[in-house]
Design a protein around this nucleic acid. Structure first.
Lengths: 182, 182, 182, 182
DNA sequence: AATGAATGAGTGTTCATTCAT
DNA sequence: AATGAATGAACACTCATTCAT
């Protein structure tokens, strides 16, 4: 049921955009009453957060697997490829959720993801002393989201190609960052 | 008066966020009646567009000056420094306007800015044959906006430091892009 | 509920006239929230159309019965008596609805009524070749509405007397019309 | 000036309909400020009344001339022909003014016109004792307006033909009316 | 648990009217 | 007299949320 509602929310966003994204439409699309929707989600923001979380969950899970096998820069590269291919699955959805998020109260979920990124980032540069990891993680996160979602608006974008450019950007950022970190 | 209303709109956005950004609030904040607001702006979207345009105008003007003196990569670098320092003046405003823009009908202004960026980009690589300039411009634009606005959420970000990392990212992107363009 | 809202709309029109006829007033009068009103009527025009339809329904039903029993001129006469007695039930309402209708988008219902009138008209002159039936039907319709609604502004108008004069007018029109139709 | 504004009001009504008929539009169309409009007309209703009066003035003047030459039924017939040809000059305007009038406070002008009609009516039946002249005048007025304005919605209506049918209707009404007046 | 009708505060927008210049 | 910028009450309509069944 929770899953049905999240599916419906995703479809409503993709089909009608931010303007058509409202709780009644979602409930309709899910073949469920609004009342039921509110049984499972405290309010609209909670629904949106849940959807964001579910969409990111795929990345988080795959990232966890990656962390078992890789370390250092390959791990970071892997994360970027992962993110590109995942977010390009439903590019419009990813973009619309990102566009909605500034209207939402802050959630634990987003910060958990960046925390994760911090960890990956730290493991990538094991040995090198780094400062302000949180800031760097947030920056890289924003580059990643910005670039992928922008590319997602175009048709026929190859995840691999996009990931290459993404790797370029992030390593460009990192080079500066590392070289300036005492 | 137009200017007063735009000032008010900016303040409302900064003080109350997207949720509190409505025409009556803006008119109130400007010490003006709603009717007057609508005398100068056809609708809320027009108001928002005007504010975006005004905020970007500074960048455009400074960019124009830059184009007189610089060419090649220094021009691109200059643009990035420019954008960072301008958008960090009122970081919340810049971020909120960017967040509102997907809800707005497309404007001539936004496309003019990316066209401008394309031109800068092309001038930066004079001599090198490039393909899909629009895509690259859009990508770089998104990296730029994403990174600056993300950094703008933190306190005490030095424009110069941010610009450095921004340059790193963009050149990282470009390196990949150029090397893969036949 | 639909019926309650239509009742309220009719009362608001009668009590406050066109100037006081707004959706909030109707909802208030019906002891219902505006939201409920909009659950049943897509917009104000739809509400007005529905009220017009309901008011005309009585005539349409009675006309259908009449058509079972009568043909020729008696049928036309019957229609005129019918309209007079029905519209005089709530004369102000009939007049105000007619006055509002030019501000409304065209409805299927109004054209259905005139089509009906055309059919009655044609049956009334079976055997006589007539041209431009639609025009004649529209003319007779306007005479009928005009005369009844005008008389409805006065007190103590006897439906039977009014119908007599109405019959006189319409047959006067028809005599000229028929004699000039080749 | 007054005349210019009335011209503009007429044009606005014809070009933009009831929905576009507002004081600012009229002032604009007249090349005059709203303030000036309100210098000559106390409010919007006064403006509309003045326009109605001016449009009917032509009929009134011609009717006065007719009354010098004709008496009895030919006078009534003359009035009907007159009205038909005058109202068909600007059929849309006539219709829209009639549609706006129920929203207006009652005016002396309309009653003056029907009073005039009463007088014509009485002269038409000199010798015959008639009762309830005001009612009859109002009824005939409404038949006249209704039929002419309805016909005015069609293209290529011949004033003479319309007048014929109008004469038929009115005399049909009158026949009944006279025969039932003791 | 599920329903969905009902709610009503809130929002964008219009336009008749005023009044300082 | 003329201007037209300014006013703000009023209105149509939306949608997140509730609660009786």
């Amino acid at each position: 049921m929770v899953s049905d509602i999240l599916d419906a929310a995703a479809l409503v966003l993709e089909e009608r955009g931010l303007a058509g994204y409202n709780t009644n439409a979602v409930a309709d699309r899910a073949g469920v009453s609004v009342g039921s929707l509110y049984q499972y989600f405290a309010n609209k923001a909670a629904l949106t957060h849940a959807l964001m979380e579910r969409e990111d969950m795929v990345i988080e899970r795959k990232l966890a697997k990656l962390e078992e096998d890789l370390v250092g820069l390959p791990l970071l590269t892997g994360l970027l490829h992962l993110s590109a291919s995942c977010r390009l699955q439903r590019p419009a959805l990813a973009r619309l959720l990102a566009a909605e998020s500034p209207r939402l109260p802050p959630s634990r979920h987003a910060s958990r993801l960046t925390a994760r990124l911090e960890s990956v980032f730290q493991r990538s540069f094991e040995g090198t002393p780094l400062q302000n990891l949180p800031d760097a993680a947030a920056d890289i996160f924003s580059i990643m989201i910005g670039l992928i979602d922008s590319a997602g608006q175009r048709d026929g974008v190859e995840p691999a190609d996009l990931a290459q450019r993404l790797v370029g950007s992030v390593f460009g950022y990192v080079d500066v960052y590392v070289s300036r970190t005492p």
